[in-house]
Design a protein around this nucleic acid. Structure first.
Lengths: 230, 230
DNA sequence: ACCCTCCTACCGAACGTTCGGTCGCTCTAA
DNA sequence: TTAGAGCGACCGAACGTTCGGTAGGAGGGT
Protein backbone atom coordinates (compact mmCIF):
# COMPACT_ATOMS: atom_id res chain seq x y z
CA UNK A 1 0.00 0.00 0.00
CA UNK A 2 1.13 3.54 -0.66
CA UNK A 3 2.68 5.13 2.37
CA UNK A 4 0.44 8.19 2.17
CA UNK A 5 -2.62 5.97 2.13
CA UNK A 6 -1.25 3.89 4.95
CA UNK A 7 -0.77 6.98 7.09
CA UNK A 8 -4.24 8.27 6.33
CA UNK A 9 -5.71 4.88 7.09
CA UNK A 10 -3.89 4.62 10.41
CA UNK A 11 -5.01 8.10 11.42
CA UNK A 12 -8.57 7.25 10.56
CA UNK A 13 -8.50 3.97 12.45
CA UNK A 14 -7.02 5.69 15.51
CA UNK A 15 -9.72 8.34 15.48
CA UNK A 16 -12.49 5.83 14.95
CA UNK A 17 -11.26 3.75 17.86
CA UNK A 18 -10.84 6.88 19.99
CA UNK A 19 -14.41 7.98 19.36
CA UNK A 20 -15.64 4.52 20.27
CA UNK A 21 -13.64 4.22 23.48
CA UNK A 22 -14.12 7.82 24.63
CA UNK A 23 -17.87 7.45 24.10
CA UNK A 24 -18.11 4.11 25.90
CA UNK A 25 -15.74 4.57 28.85
CA UNK A 26 -15.11 8.30 28.87
CA UNK A 27 -11.91 10.14 28.01
CA UNK A 28 -10.31 9.88 31.44
CA UNK A 29 -10.99 6.16 31.70
CA UNK A 30 -9.42 5.41 28.31
CA UNK A 31 -5.66 4.96 28.19
CA UNK A 32 -3.39 5.38 25.22
CA UNK A 33 -2.62 1.69 25.59
CA UNK A 34 -6.31 0.80 25.34
CA UNK A 35 -6.47 2.85 22.18
CA UNK A 36 -3.33 1.25 20.78
CA UNK A 37 -4.62 -2.25 21.45
CA UNK A 38 -7.87 -1.41 19.64
CA UNK A 39 -6.04 -0.33 16.47
CA UNK A 40 -3.35 -3.02 16.66
CA UNK A 41 -0.39 -0.85 17.55
CA UNK A 42 1.80 -0.14 20.52
CA UNK A 43 1.26 2.91 22.66
CA UNK A 44 4.40 4.46 21.17
CA UNK A 45 3.09 4.04 17.66
CA UNK A 46 0.04 6.13 18.44
CA UNK A 47 2.25 9.16 18.99
CA UNK A 48 3.34 9.13 15.36
CA UNK A 49 -0.16 10.15 14.40
CA UNK A 50 -1.24 12.21 17.39
CA UNK A 51 0.63 14.88 19.31
CA UNK A 52 -1.07 14.17 22.64
CA UNK A 53 -4.09 12.47 24.10
CA UNK A 54 -5.78 15.77 24.81
CA UNK A 55 -5.04 17.11 21.30
CA UNK A 56 -6.68 13.98 19.90
CA UNK A 57 -9.82 14.62 21.94
CA UNK A 58 -9.86 18.28 20.98
CA UNK A 59 -9.53 17.34 17.33
CA UNK A 60 -12.45 14.93 17.49
CA UNK A 61 -14.62 17.48 19.24
CA UNK A 62 -13.75 20.40 17.00
CA UNK A 63 -14.41 18.51 13.77
CA UNK A 64 -17.67 17.13 15.11
CA UNK A 65 -18.92 20.50 16.29
CA UNK A 66 -17.90 22.19 13.05
CA UNK A 67 -19.59 19.44 11.04
CA UNK A 68 -22.82 20.00 12.95
CA UNK A 69 -22.66 23.73 12.29
CA UNK A 70 -21.97 23.27 8.59
CA UNK A 71 -24.78 20.77 8.19
CA UNK A 72 -27.18 23.04 10.06
CA UNK A 73 -26.37 26.01 7.87
CA UNK A 74 -26.76 23.90 4.74
CA UNK A 75 -30.18 22.80 5.97
CA UNK A 76 -31.37 26.25 6.95
CA UNK A 77 -30.14 27.94 3.78
CA UNK A 78 -32.99 29.92 2.28
CA UNK A 79 -35.54 28.83 4.86
CA UNK A 80 -37.26 31.91 6.26
CA UNK A 81 -40.24 30.78 8.29
CA UNK A 82 -39.33 30.39 11.99
CA UNK A 83 -41.53 27.31 12.29
CA UNK A 84 -39.75 25.67 9.38
CA UNK A 85 -36.38 26.62 10.81
CA UNK A 86 -37.24 25.24 14.24
CA UNK A 87 -38.49 22.02 12.67
CA UNK A 88 -35.25 21.66 10.71
CA UNK A 89 -33.16 22.38 13.80
CA UNK A 90 -34.98 19.68 15.72
CA UNK A 91 -34.78 17.15 12.90
CA UNK A 92 -31.13 17.68 12.14
CA UNK A 93 -29.97 17.70 15.76
CA UNK A 94 -31.97 14.56 16.49
CA UNK A 95 -30.82 12.75 13.35
CA UNK A 96 -27.20 13.72 13.97
CA UNK A 97 -27.35 12.22 17.44
CA UNK A 98 -29.15 9.13 16.18
CA UNK A 99 -26.70 8.44 13.34
CA UNK A 100 -23.54 9.56 15.12
CA UNK A 101 -24.13 8.50 18.71
CA UNK A 102 -20.48 7.96 19.60
CA UNK A 103 -19.22 11.17 18.04
CA UNK A 104 -22.00 13.26 19.54
CA UNK A 105 -21.62 11.75 22.99
CA UNK A 106 -17.98 12.76 23.00
CA UNK A 107 -18.86 16.16 21.55
CA UNK A 108 -21.59 16.81 24.13
CA UNK A 109 -20.01 15.30 27.20
CA UNK A 110 -16.24 15.63 27.19
CA UNK A 111 -15.77 19.38 27.27
CA UNK A 112 -14.82 19.06 30.93
CA UNK A 113 -11.85 16.91 29.92
CA UNK A 114 -10.16 19.76 28.06
CA UNK A 115 -7.77 21.89 30.12
CA UNK A 116 -9.63 24.95 31.38
CA UNK A 117 -8.46 28.12 29.69
CA UNK A 118 -6.76 26.30 26.83
CA UNK A 119 -7.17 27.74 23.37
CA UNK A 120 -8.80 24.64 21.88
CA UNK A 121 -11.32 24.49 24.67
CA UNK A 122 -12.29 28.13 24.19
CA UNK A 123 -12.53 27.56 20.47
CA UNK A 124 -14.87 24.60 20.88
CA UNK A 125 -17.02 26.54 23.32
CA UNK A 126 -17.22 29.32 20.74
CA UNK A 127 -18.34 26.79 18.14
CA UNK A 128 -20.99 25.52 20.49
CA UNK A 129 -22.21 29.04 21.09
CA UNK A 130 -22.33 29.65 17.34
CA UNK A 131 -24.44 26.54 16.90
CA UNK A 132 -26.84 27.49 19.67
CA UNK A 133 -27.27 30.92 18.12
CA UNK A 134 -29.25 29.28 15.33
CA UNK A 135 -31.71 28.07 17.94
CA UNK A 136 -31.79 31.40 19.73
CA UNK A 137 -32.46 33.22 16.48
CA UNK A 138 -35.20 30.88 15.29
CA UNK A 139 -37.07 31.14 18.58
CA UNK A 140 -36.63 34.92 18.81
CA UNK A 141 -37.79 35.40 15.21
CA UNK A 142 -40.82 33.23 15.82
CA UNK A 143 -41.77 35.32 18.83
CA UNK A 144 -41.08 38.59 17.02
CA UNK A 145 -43.27 37.52 14.09
CA UNK A 146 -46.00 36.44 16.46
CA UNK A 147 -46.08 32.82 15.28
CA UNK A 148 -44.56 31.42 18.52
CA UNK A 149 -45.91 31.98 22.00
CA UNK A 150 -43.09 31.24 24.42
CA UNK A 151 -42.93 32.04 28.12
CA UNK A 152 -39.14 31.73 28.40
CA UNK A 153 -37.09 31.32 25.23
CA UNK A 154 -33.96 30.06 26.98
CA UNK A 155 -35.98 27.50 28.90
CA UNK A 156 -37.72 26.27 25.78
CA UNK A 157 -34.48 26.04 23.85
CA UNK A 158 -32.74 24.06 26.59
CA UNK A 159 -35.67 21.67 26.95
CA UNK A 160 -35.85 20.95 23.24
CA UNK A 161 -32.12 20.62 22.79
CA UNK A 162 -31.92 18.16 25.69
CA UNK A 163 -34.65 16.13 24.09
CA UNK A 164 -32.76 16.01 20.78
CA UNK A 165 -29.29 15.31 22.18
CA UNK A 166 -30.65 12.58 24.45
CA UNK A 167 -31.31 10.57 21.31
CA UNK A 168 -27.70 9.41 21.20
CA UNK A 169 -28.29 7.52 24.43
CA UNK A 170 -31.05 5.22 23.27
CA UNK A 171 -31.59 5.27 19.50
CA UNK A 172 -30.81 2.06 17.62
CA UNK A 173 -31.14 1.82 13.82
CA UNK A 174 -32.68 -1.62 14.24
CA UNK A 175 -34.99 -0.51 17.03
CA UNK A 176 -38.72 -0.03 17.20
CA UNK A 177 -38.93 3.44 15.70
CA UNK A 178 -37.47 4.61 12.43
CA UNK A 179 -35.43 7.77 12.32
CA UNK A 180 -38.21 9.49 10.39
CA UNK A 181 -40.72 8.62 13.11
CA UNK A 182 -38.44 9.96 15.81
CA UNK A 183 -37.85 13.23 13.97
CA UNK A 184 -41.52 13.67 13.18
CA UNK A 185 -42.54 13.07 16.77
CA UNK A 186 -39.88 15.41 18.15
CA UNK A 187 -40.84 18.13 15.68
CA UNK A 188 -44.44 17.78 16.78
CA UNK A 189 -43.43 18.11 20.43
CA UNK A 190 -41.23 21.11 19.64
CA UNK A 191 -43.92 22.95 17.73
CA UNK A 192 -46.37 22.27 20.53
CA UNK A 193 -43.85 23.66 22.99
CA UNK A 194 -43.76 26.99 21.16
CA UNK A 195 -47.53 27.00 20.49
CA UNK A 196 -46.73 27.37 16.80
CA UNK A 197 -49.68 28.62 14.83
CA UNK A 198 -48.00 28.22 11.45
CA UNK A 199 -47.95 24.99 9.54
CA UNK A 200 -44.60 23.37 8.83
CA UNK A 201 -43.81 22.70 5.21
CA UNK A 202 -40.05 22.13 5.30
CA UNK A 203 -38.90 18.54 4.99
CA UNK A 204 -35.42 17.72 6.25
CA UNK A 205 -33.00 16.48 3.62
CA UNK A 206 -31.11 13.79 5.50
CA UNK A 207 -28.35 13.81 2.90
CA UNK A 208 -27.36 17.21 4.29
CA UNK A 209 -26.63 15.78 7.73
CA UNK A 210 -23.11 16.16 9.09
CA UNK A 211 -20.59 13.56 8.04
CA UNK A 212 -18.87 12.55 11.26
CA UNK A 213 -15.77 11.11 9.62
CA UNK A 214 -14.72 8.92 12.54
CA UNK A 215 -18.01 7.56 13.73
CA UNK A 216 -17.42 3.85 14.25
CA UNK A 217 -19.41 1.47 12.07
CA UNK A 218 -22.34 0.21 14.07
CA UNK A 219 -20.89 -2.50 16.25
CA UNK A 220 -23.53 -5.17 16.48
CA UNK A 221 -21.85 -6.61 19.53
CA UNK A 222 -23.47 -3.91 21.65
CA UNK A 223 -21.38 -0.79 21.53
CA UNK A 224 -23.59 0.83 24.12
CA UNK A 225 -23.57 0.42 27.89
CA UNK A 226 -26.24 -1.92 29.13
CA UNK A 227 -28.34 0.77 30.74
CA UNK A 228 -29.02 2.32 27.33
CA UNK A 229 -30.18 -0.88 25.70
CA UNK A 230 -33.79 -0.88 26.77
CA UNK B 1 -17.18 16.20 69.81
CA UNK B 2 -18.52 12.71 70.28
CA UNK B 3 -16.57 10.14 68.30
CA UNK B 4 -19.71 8.76 66.70
CA UNK B 5 -20.66 12.24 65.56
CA UNK B 6 -17.15 12.90 64.32
CA UNK B 7 -17.23 9.76 62.24
CA UNK B 8 -20.63 10.59 60.84
CA UNK B 9 -19.46 14.08 60.04
CA UNK B 10 -16.33 12.86 58.27
CA UNK B 11 -18.36 10.36 56.26
CA UNK B 12 -20.78 13.07 55.25
CA UNK B 13 -18.02 15.48 54.24
CA UNK B 14 -16.32 12.78 52.21
CA UNK B 15 -19.52 11.96 50.37
CA UNK B 16 -20.38 15.59 49.77
CA UNK B 17 -16.95 16.23 48.31
CA UNK B 18 -17.16 13.03 46.26
CA UNK B 19 -20.48 14.05 44.73
CA UNK B 20 -19.03 17.46 43.88
CA UNK B 21 -15.83 16.14 42.29
CA UNK B 22 -17.43 13.19 40.51
CA UNK B 23 -20.04 15.53 39.04
CA UNK B 24 -17.54 18.15 37.95
CA UNK B 25 -14.64 16.07 36.63
CA UNK B 26 -16.13 12.61 36.37
CA UNK B 27 -15.37 9.55 38.48
CA UNK B 28 -12.36 8.36 36.49
CA UNK B 29 -10.74 11.79 36.50
CA UNK B 30 -11.08 12.15 40.29
CA UNK B 31 -8.40 10.58 42.47
CA UNK B 32 -8.67 9.56 46.07
CA UNK B 33 -6.01 12.19 46.76
CA UNK B 34 -8.16 14.90 45.14
CA UNK B 35 -10.99 13.80 47.37
CA UNK B 36 -8.78 13.74 50.45
CA UNK B 37 -7.47 17.24 49.78
CA UNK B 38 -11.03 18.52 49.43
CA UNK B 39 -12.02 17.20 52.87
CA UNK B 40 -8.70 18.04 54.54
CA UNK B 41 -7.34 14.54 54.97
CA UNK B 42 -4.71 12.28 53.49
CA UNK B 43 -5.58 9.56 51.02
CA UNK B 44 -5.03 6.95 53.72
CA UNK B 45 -7.49 8.66 56.01
CA UNK B 46 -10.24 8.32 53.42
CA UNK B 47 -10.00 4.55 53.64
CA UNK B 48 -11.12 4.61 57.25
CA UNK B 49 -14.54 5.67 56.04
CA UNK B 50 -14.78 4.04 52.63
CA UNK B 51 -13.89 0.51 51.57
CA UNK B 52 -12.95 1.41 48.00
CA UNK B 53 -13.35 4.17 45.48
CA UNK B 54 -15.84 2.15 43.45
CA UNK B 55 -17.86 1.23 46.56
CA UNK B 56 -18.08 4.93 47.38
CA UNK B 57 -19.46 5.69 43.91
CA UNK B 58 -21.88 2.80 44.09
CA UNK B 59 -23.09 4.00 47.48
CA UNK B 60 -23.74 7.52 46.21
CA UNK B 61 -25.60 6.21 43.17
CA UNK B 62 -27.68 3.67 45.03
CA UNK B 63 -28.85 6.11 47.68
CA UNK B 64 -29.64 8.76 45.07
CA UNK B 65 -31.60 6.38 42.88
CA UNK B 66 -33.48 4.97 45.86
CA UNK B 67 -34.26 8.47 47.08
CA UNK B 68 -35.73 9.37 43.72
CA UNK B 69 -37.88 6.25 43.75
CA UNK B 70 -39.12 6.89 47.28
CA UNK B 71 -39.94 10.51 46.53
CA UNK B 72 -41.75 9.54 43.33
CA UNK B 73 -43.88 6.98 45.12
CA UNK B 74 -44.70 9.47 47.88
CA UNK B 75 -45.81 11.96 45.24
CA UNK B 76 -47.87 9.50 43.21
CA UNK B 77 -49.57 7.97 46.25
CA UNK B 78 -53.30 8.00 45.68
CA UNK B 79 -53.12 9.82 42.36
CA UNK B 80 -55.17 7.90 39.79
CA UNK B 81 -55.50 10.07 36.70
CA UNK B 82 -52.75 9.32 34.17
CA UNK B 83 -52.49 13.01 33.26
CA UNK B 84 -51.95 13.93 36.89
CA UNK B 85 -49.42 11.15 37.30
CA UNK B 86 -47.49 12.20 34.22
CA UNK B 87 -47.49 15.80 35.40
CA UNK B 88 -46.15 14.76 38.79
CA UNK B 89 -43.48 12.56 37.20
CA UNK B 90 -42.30 15.47 35.07
CA UNK B 91 -42.34 17.94 37.94
CA UNK B 92 -40.56 15.74 40.41
CA UNK B 93 -37.88 14.53 37.99
CA UNK B 94 -37.23 18.08 36.83
CA UNK B 95 -37.16 19.52 40.35
CA UNK B 96 -34.91 16.73 41.58
CA UNK B 97 -32.40 17.51 38.85
CA UNK B 98 -32.67 21.24 39.45
CA UNK B 99 -32.15 21.03 43.21
CA UNK B 100 -29.67 18.17 43.22
CA UNK B 101 -27.63 18.75 40.07
CA UNK B 102 -24.42 17.18 41.33
CA UNK B 103 -26.05 14.09 42.78
CA UNK B 104 -28.23 13.53 39.73
CA UNK B 105 -25.38 14.03 37.29
CA UNK B 106 -23.44 11.31 39.05
CA UNK B 107 -26.57 9.15 39.24
CA UNK B 108 -27.38 9.57 35.55
CA UNK B 109 -23.92 9.53 34.05
CA UNK B 110 -21.57 7.31 35.99
CA UNK B 111 -23.16 3.91 35.57
CA UNK B 112 -20.44 3.09 33.06
CA UNK B 113 -17.83 3.52 35.79
CA UNK B 114 -19.14 0.56 37.78
CA UNK B 115 -17.55 -2.81 36.99
CA UNK B 116 -19.74 -4.62 34.44
CA UNK B 117 -21.47 -7.59 35.97
CA UNK B 118 -20.88 -6.50 39.55
CA UNK B 119 -23.72 -6.94 41.99
CA UNK B 120 -23.99 -3.26 42.88
CA UNK B 121 -24.16 -2.28 39.24
CA UNK B 122 -26.94 -4.75 38.54
CA UNK B 123 -28.76 -3.55 41.62
CA UNK B 124 -28.59 0.08 40.54
CA UNK B 125 -29.76 -0.83 37.03
CA UNK B 126 -32.68 -2.64 38.64
CA UNK B 127 -33.50 0.49 40.65
CA UNK B 128 -33.41 2.55 37.48
CA UNK B 129 -35.73 0.12 35.78
CA UNK B 130 -38.08 0.28 38.74
CA UNK B 131 -38.13 4.07 38.50
CA UNK B 132 -38.79 4.05 34.77
CA UNK B 133 -41.66 1.65 35.28
CA UNK B 134 -43.62 4.48 36.84
CA UNK B 135 -43.29 6.37 33.57
CA UNK B 136 -44.12 3.32 31.49
CA UNK B 137 -47.21 2.66 33.55
CA UNK B 138 -48.48 6.24 33.50
CA UNK B 139 -48.18 6.45 29.73
CA UNK B 140 -49.69 3.02 29.15
CA UNK B 141 -52.61 3.80 31.47
CA UNK B 142 -53.23 7.09 29.72
CA UNK B 143 -53.37 5.33 26.37
CA UNK B 144 -55.55 2.52 27.73
CA UNK B 145 -57.99 5.02 29.20
CA UNK B 146 -58.07 6.97 25.97
CA UNK B 147 -56.85 10.23 27.50
CA UNK B 148 -53.42 10.09 25.81
CA UNK B 149 -52.80 9.76 22.08
CA UNK B 150 -49.22 8.53 21.68
CA UNK B 151 -47.59 7.17 18.53
CA UNK B 152 -44.73 5.44 20.34
CA UNK B 153 -44.79 5.24 24.13
CA UNK B 154 -41.11 4.40 24.51
CA UNK B 155 -40.15 7.28 22.26
CA UNK B 156 -42.31 9.72 24.16
CA UNK B 157 -41.02 8.55 27.50
CA UNK B 158 -37.38 8.88 26.45
CA UNK B 159 -37.94 12.34 24.99
CA UNK B 160 -39.63 13.64 28.12
CA UNK B 161 -37.17 12.05 30.51
CA UNK B 162 -34.24 13.54 28.57
CA UNK B 163 -35.88 16.93 28.82
CA UNK B 164 -36.26 16.58 32.60
CA UNK B 165 -32.82 15.15 33.36
CA UNK B 166 -31.14 17.78 31.20
CA UNK B 167 -32.18 20.33 33.80
CA UNK B 168 -29.21 19.43 35.98
CA UNK B 169 -26.91 20.82 33.26
CA UNK B 170 -28.22 24.36 33.15
CA UNK B 171 -30.57 25.22 36.02
CA UNK B 172 -29.40 27.81 38.52
CA UNK B 173 -31.48 28.80 41.55
CA UNK B 174 -30.53 32.42 40.96
CA UNK B 175 -31.20 32.22 37.23
CA UNK B 176 -33.88 33.76 35.06
CA UNK B 177 -36.59 31.16 35.63
CA UNK B 178 -37.94 29.95 38.94
CA UNK B 179 -38.26 26.25 39.59
CA UNK B 180 -42.03 26.57 39.47
CA UNK B 181 -41.86 28.15 36.03
CA UNK B 182 -39.59 25.41 34.75
CA UNK B 183 -41.83 22.66 36.06
CA UNK B 184 -44.97 24.31 34.74
CA UNK B 185 -43.46 24.75 31.29
CA UNK B 186 -42.16 21.19 31.15
CA UNK B 187 -45.50 19.80 32.28
CA UNK B 188 -47.18 21.78 29.52
CA UNK B 189 -44.75 20.38 26.95
CA UNK B 190 -45.24 16.86 28.28
CA UNK B 191 -49.01 17.01 28.17
CA UNK B 192 -48.86 18.39 24.64
CA UNK B 193 -46.57 15.52 23.69
CA UNK B 194 -49.21 12.97 24.73
CA UNK B 195 -52.11 15.03 23.32
CA UNK B 196 -53.68 14.91 26.77
CA UNK B 197 -57.35 15.66 26.66
CA UNK B 198 -57.78 15.68 30.44
CA UNK B 199 -57.09 18.70 32.60
CA UNK B 200 -54.34 18.43 35.18
CA UNK B 201 -55.35 19.18 38.72
CA UNK B 202 -52.46 17.71 40.69
CA UNK B 203 -50.00 20.18 42.16
CA UNK B 204 -46.56 18.86 43.07
CA UNK B 205 -45.66 19.11 46.73
CA UNK B 206 -42.01 20.09 46.60
CA UNK B 207 -41.51 19.07 50.21
CA UNK B 208 -41.89 15.47 49.01
CA UNK B 209 -38.84 15.73 46.75
CA UNK B 210 -35.95 13.38 47.41
CA UNK B 211 -33.46 14.43 50.03
CA UNK B 212 -30.11 13.86 48.40
CA UNK B 213 -28.13 13.72 51.65
CA UNK B 214 -24.75 14.53 50.11
CA UNK B 215 -25.65 17.19 47.59
CA UNK B 216 -23.04 19.92 48.08
CA UNK B 217 -24.31 23.29 49.26
CA UNK B 218 -24.63 25.54 46.25
CA UNK B 219 -21.11 26.72 45.63
CA UNK B 220 -21.40 30.31 44.52
CA UNK B 221 -17.93 30.19 43.06
CA UNK B 222 -19.29 28.40 39.99
CA UNK B 223 -19.56 24.71 40.69
CA UNK B 224 -20.46 24.06 37.07
CA UNK B 225 -18.26 23.78 34.02
CA UNK B 226 -18.17 26.93 31.97
CA UNK B 227 -20.18 25.52 29.11
CA UNK B 228 -23.21 25.14 31.35
CA UNK B 229 -23.20 28.70 32.60
CA UNK B 230 -25.07 30.38 29.79
C1' DA C 1 17.60 -4.66 -13.46
C1' DC C 2 20.25 -3.36 -9.54
C1' DC C 3 22.11 -0.93 -5.47
C1' DC C 4 22.24 2.75 -2.33
C1' DT C 5 20.29 6.19 0.33
C1' DC C 6 16.53 8.42 2.43
C1' DC C 7 12.26 8.59 4.87
C1' DT C 8 8.57 7.12 7.62
C1' DA C 9 5.66 4.09 10.19
C1' DC C 10 6.20 1.63 14.03
C1' DC C 11 8.36 -0.99 18.04
C1' DG C 12 10.76 -2.14 22.68
C1' DA C 13 12.02 -0.14 26.57
C1' DA C 14 12.17 3.10 29.64
C1' DC C 15 11.25 7.80 31.84
C1' DG C 16 9.07 10.27 35.91
C1' DT C 17 4.57 10.63 37.83
C1' DT C 18 0.31 9.28 39.69
C1' DC C 19 -2.91 5.77 40.57
C1' DG C 20 -5.82 2.81 44.20
C1' DG C 21 -4.79 0.72 48.20
C1' DT C 22 -2.11 -1.08 52.62
C1' DC C 23 0.48 -1.04 56.94
C1' DG C 24 1.88 0.45 61.34
C1' DC C 25 2.31 4.21 64.15
C1' DT C 26 0.57 8.44 66.84
C1' DC C 27 -2.58 11.04 69.03
C1' DT C 28 -6.87 11.99 71.21
C1' DA C 29 -11.34 11.60 73.25
C1' DA C 30 -13.95 8.85 76.27
C1' DT D 1 -6.59 2.33 79.51
C1' DT D 2 -8.44 1.56 75.28
C1' DA D 3 -10.56 2.11 70.64
C1' DG D 4 -10.28 4.15 66.56
C1' DA D 5 -9.49 8.40 63.51
C1' DG D 6 -6.02 9.97 60.95
C1' DC D 7 -1.10 10.26 59.22
C1' DG D 8 3.50 9.17 56.93
C1' DA D 9 5.54 6.01 54.27
C1' DC D 10 5.15 2.86 51.08
C1' DC D 11 3.58 -0.91 47.45
C1' DG D 12 2.90 -2.67 42.68
C1' DA D 13 0.67 -1.22 38.76
C1' DA D 14 -0.67 1.83 35.35
C1' DC D 15 -0.44 6.36 33.49
C1' DG D 16 1.13 9.80 29.40
C1' DT D 17 5.06 10.52 27.01
C1' DT D 18 9.86 10.08 25.07
C1' DC D 19 13.76 7.98 22.80
C1' DG D 20 16.79 5.15 20.04
C1' DG D 21 16.38 1.80 16.90
C1' DT D 22 14.55 -1.02 12.89
C1' DA D 23 12.09 -2.80 8.90
C1' DG D 24 10.77 -1.80 4.51
C1' DG D 25 8.73 1.01 0.82
C1' DA D 26 10.08 5.17 -2.21
C1' DG D 27 13.09 7.39 -5.33
C1' DG D 28 17.21 8.31 -8.01
C1' DG D 29 21.40 6.98 -10.38
C1' DT D 30 23.50 3.62 -13.11
Amino acid sequence: MDLKDRDADASRRIRTAAVLLFAQRGYAATSIRDLAREVGMTNAGIYHHVSSKEALLADLMRVAQQGLIDATERMLRGVRSPADRLALLISSLTASHALGPMTTRVMDGELRSLTPGSAVRDQIIALRDAYEDHWRLALADGVAEGVFRIADQRLTRLALMSMCTGTSEWYRPDGDSTLEQVCAEFVAIGLAAVRASAQVVATPDLSLLPDFPWEPPDVRNDPRPAEARR
